[in-house]
Simulated scan of single mutants.
Amino acid sequence: MQLEVGSLVTGKVTSITKFGAFIDLGEGKTGMVHISEIAPTYVNEIRDHLTEGQEVKVKVLTVGTDGKIGLSIKKAIDNPPPAAHSPQKPFRREGGRGGADFGRRNNESMTFEDMMNKFKQSSDEKMYDLKRSVESKRGSSGTKRGAKFG
């Protein structure tokens, strides 16, 4: 069987690593599905989506001259949902670091521009607080460093 880029084939998961899964395509050929090609959503743990021995439908992305075969499960899905980073959809941040809240507030979605404005405002406030803090530690006598006292 000659594998061509773009073809859909069925294979069996032979092993799972932290960066992807290896798929036995038959006839002694093995390909790899990178973690970013496992599912149309963010994949933190591959074992949440695949198990060893599972049969999967994959799309051939690359066939290297060195014999390496790049595969995708998410591109083999008939109707994948639109990408999460689509500019048409509002971006939501579920959590994380930082003082700014970029998530939903009062059940309304924020556009990218709204988020940028909120981030800029938050950043300006933090810079102002930082400057004020540094000046208070130095003392606000109005003298510059290295100035001679008379």
Results as ranks from 00 to 15, higher is better:
M1E: 12
E4S: 10
V9N: 06
K12D: 09
T14E: 02
T14S: 14
T17A: 14
F19R: 07
I23V: 04
D24E: 03
D24S: 13
L25M: 09
L25N: 00
E27Y: 09
G28M: 01
K29A: 13
G31N: 01
V33Y: 00
V33I: 07
A39P: 03
T41E: 15
Y42R: 08
V43G: 03
D48N: 14
L50K: 00
L50E: 02
T51M: 06
E52R: 09
E52V: 15
G53I: 01
Q54Y: 09
E55Q: 08
K59T: 03
V60T: 03
T62R: 03
T62H: 08
T62E: 14
V63G: 03
T65N: 13
G67F: 13
I69Y: 01
L71C: 05
A76E: 04
A76M: 04
I77F: 13
P81L: 07
A83I: 06
A84N: 07
S86K: 07
S86W: 11
S86P: 06
P87S: 09
K89T: 08
K89L: 15
K89H: 11
F91C: 03
R92M: 06
E94H: 06
E94L: 08
G95E: 07
G95I: 04
R97P: 03
G98F: 12
G98E: 06
G99W: 05
F102I: 00
G103W: 10
R105F: 15
R105I: 15
E108Y: 14
E108C: 11
E108Q: 10
S109Q: 11
S109A: 15
S109Y: 15
M110D: 07
T111V: 03
E113Q: 10
M116G: 01
N117A: 15
K120F: 08
K120W: 09
Q121Y: 10
S122T: 13
S123N: 13
S123Y: 15
E125G: 14
M127T: 09
Y128N: 10
L130V: 10
K131V: 00
K131W: 11
R132C: 12
S133W: 13
S133T: 10
S133H: 11
V134G: 05
S136E: 14
K137M: 15
R138G: 06
S141W: 09
K144L: 02
K144H: 13
R145E: 02
R145V: 04
F149K: 12
G150Q: 02
